[in-house]
Amino acid sequence: MFPDPDSKLAQRLNPVLFLLPALTIYIVFAIYPTFSVVEYSFTDWDGISPDRNYVGLANYERLFSDKIFWAAFRNTFVWSGVIIVINVGLGLVIAAMLARVWKARLLIQTCIVLPVVISPMAVATIWRWMYQPTGAINQALEGIGLSALSTPWLGSPDTVLYALALAHSWSTIGLSVIIFLAGLQAVDEDLYEAAHVDGANVFQSFRYVTLPALRPVTAVVFILTLTQSFKVFDIVWATTQGGPIRFSEILSTYMYKRGALENQYGYGSAIGVALLVIVSIATILYMQIQQKEDR
């Protein structure tokens, strides 16, 4: 199978043989569709019929005047904003607290990270059930005398996006905590000692030691959370499918509806391209920040 290792032929052939399996699959099923989605977006194809016509920028013109697209666009940003506040803010605080605790640390960490491995589909089922009008959340609110706050979380336009963002954060915050913890391990213990000697309390040492030392890591978690939350489809689709009406419609669900369900391949692809552009920009930022940190 492999020719004499020293022959010229082997030297030429080996890289091909080693790369071929990965590269073939990768180009056919990942790179090619990425170019295709751009191509589709300039056509009026319905995804089924053999003929498709190039329509220039018509799909993008429609995109810009499509109120639902802009609603989905805005929702995607609101959704990501909420998740960033929780995953970066709360994630940082939890990690900082965990780093100061030795007893039961692994147990606590396990509890916080465990939801990360749960399938978004299962997360959707669990939270859909808990958010029901008579579900666990409202029953718990009633139990502590806050029944005034109880509401049909996923049925109300005011709460649905935030409720889903909370569910998503529940299942992803563990990742932020892990990354922050790794960053905290690099912080010099002596700094805390010095702060302690100077009479700083827990909050002051968090404010003046932990926060500045973690600034690069925070940037990493920020962009990471951003890209991750833009890509979300499963949990929204499996709970509300973008409803009620359009109040939890995000770019991915809207693209799926137009493209896969209504067979508007051209238009759906234009939405896909919008998503591609946003996520690529965020990912490039992420890689640049991380590279800077590695150096």
Partner: peptide, 11 residues
């Protein structure tokens, strides 16, 4: 690393 699966599912 940059391609979001969501964006290319149609093709």
């Amino acid at each position: 690393l940059m391609i979001p699966v969501t964006a290319i599912v149609l093709p």
